[in-house]
Design a binder for these strands. Structure first.
Lengths: 267, 267
DNA sequence: ACGACTTTGTGCCTGCGTTCACAAGCGGCT
DNA sequence: AGCCGCTTGTGAACGCAGGCACAAAGTCGT
């Protein structure tokens, strides 16, 4: 049991419950609890739901039909109480004494995540990363068909990448509108990221996944998620440094070896 | 006010103050050396420090020598109070009435993030994504030299990618040890990710950036950060769906009829 | 040299998210 | 059918992170 520890730390950006809007009074207790309505699902829980979905899909393919919160939690690398609470946000689909029906859970999570609709994706910036993204099988296989590719390089125009021809950045707006692209992926150099972002927004794109290391300005109705590889590395670097410090301190303080053993705490 | 809004929502994984380690007993280990050493910088703050560093570097190159918390906060897309608090975690390096010295701040953040030491990186899995990562200029330029590349495909052996020859996965352990790799990047298919991870750990790698959609099991002394593109997309998808729901609900809004159910919302 | 202005650093408060612990509920066994 | 044991669902407590607002501190102008 090699450590099913806490796993990756991603204390990224803001917390923000899904509920908040601009400055409305909200009063939170409307009552559309009728059937669906994803009310007040914590952002963090949404991220985990996506993970559960992946695990469940894999299990479903292995023929598993029922699973307990304990098992699923272990497979997803989280605490079982947290898992149950996460699932409770989307409704009660478990059977006490038994567990959850894998298929039911999959459908419900997909429904909540909005995966029942197709979300066409446009990738902008067909450099190394853009290339990888355009070819990334994980997108289409999970309901995110790549509908368009864009770049500025005229040598790339019309060249098919992953089966889709590259088009010019100038045409982002019209093409996105035409193909009903809802998600834009920015994999351009930072200098043009904002421009590209604006074009995507003009084209009706509602959500943006930004790989460029810049802070994008967008209207309130557009959602941006940022993935900054350098930042990820620096966070890791911080942890390495912290460990080194700790190890050193440990020696000075009580002479216990840091590395091995989980009985670290003794006492 | 076009919208320099809150920017991306990344309520990813756990919160966890940098202090915690096991998930064991709460008792002991609160007081020990850990506190003294790692000044308990919140994980979220670390992530932001990396962002500040990027902004500051850019400003420094533009000849800016001094900056106020307000300006820096705006450039980094955060609240100025939060920024000041983040900076206070690493010490007091500002001058009241003036602001912060850009160069000083850069050095201090670099020190805290452990960027004074070199962190050699190994990329495993030279597919589309691995290719992109190996060529990614953001790594070496920020103090993360790519020291080794690995894959299983024998056709790739020895082929230089981004100037570095690809080596076989079998040799991960020895090469990582030899070249003192501290950070491993996994860009392989999920099926082999755990195996690769184990090899990296055996090779002395302390931190892993995992792009494979699997939950890795690692010893306690290894740090893992996960970047799952499909999960990112699904989170965006959720927000699209939520927006659609809200828009629809807007019509019914403010009926203020508590009516049935009462819902579970408030407490 | 002194006062007014600017900006930092931080104590406090609020609120979200995580965890604990347990009652309710359901299936299986006798 | 009734009891027993297992697992869910959730109320409650806790802890961390974010935001406000202000006192401390230093600078600039006169």
């Amino acid at each position: 049991m090699a450590a099913q520890r806490d796993q990756g730390h991603n204390g990224d950006q803001p917390p923000a419950t899904v509920a908040d809007a601009p400055a409305r009074e909200v009063t939170a207790r409307d009552v559309p609890a009728a059937r669906e309505r994803a009310r007040a699902i914590p952002e963090a829980a949404v991220a985990r739901l996506a993970v559960y979905l992946r695990v469940l899909s894999a299990m479903g393919e292995d023929g598993v039909t029922t699973i307990s919160s304990e098992e699923l939690a272990a497979a997803a690398g989280v605490n079982s109480a947290k898992l149950r609470k996460d699932l409770s946000y989307i409704g009660s689909y478990g059977t006490r004494g038994v567990g959850y029906d894998v298929d039911v859970l999959i459908s419900e999570i997909e429904r909540i995540l909005g995966l029942t609709r197709k979300h066409s994706v446009a990738v902008v910036g067909i450099g190394n990363l853009g290339h990888a993204l355009a070819n990334y099988g994980g997108f289409p296989s999970r309901g995110f068909p790549v509908a368009a590719l864009f770049d500025v390089d005229s040598d790339l125009m019309g060249v098919p990448v992953g089966g889709i021809p590259v088009e010019h950045i100038e045409d982002i707006e019209s093409i996105c509108r035409e193909r009903e692209v809802t998600i834009g992926v920015i994999a351009t150099p930072p200098s043009v990221a904002q421009d590209v972002c604006d074009r995507l927004v003009s084209g009706g794109v509602q959500c943006i996944l930004n790989f460029a290391p810049v802070v994008l300005g967008v209207p309130d109705h557009v959602e941006v998620r940022k993935v900054d590889l350098a930042v990820e590395m620096q966070i890791l670097s911080f942890h390495v440094a912290r460990r080194a410090d700790e190890a050193q301190a440990e020696v000075t303080v009580d002479g216990t070896r840091p590395g091995v053993g989980e009985a670290v705490v003794g006492r």
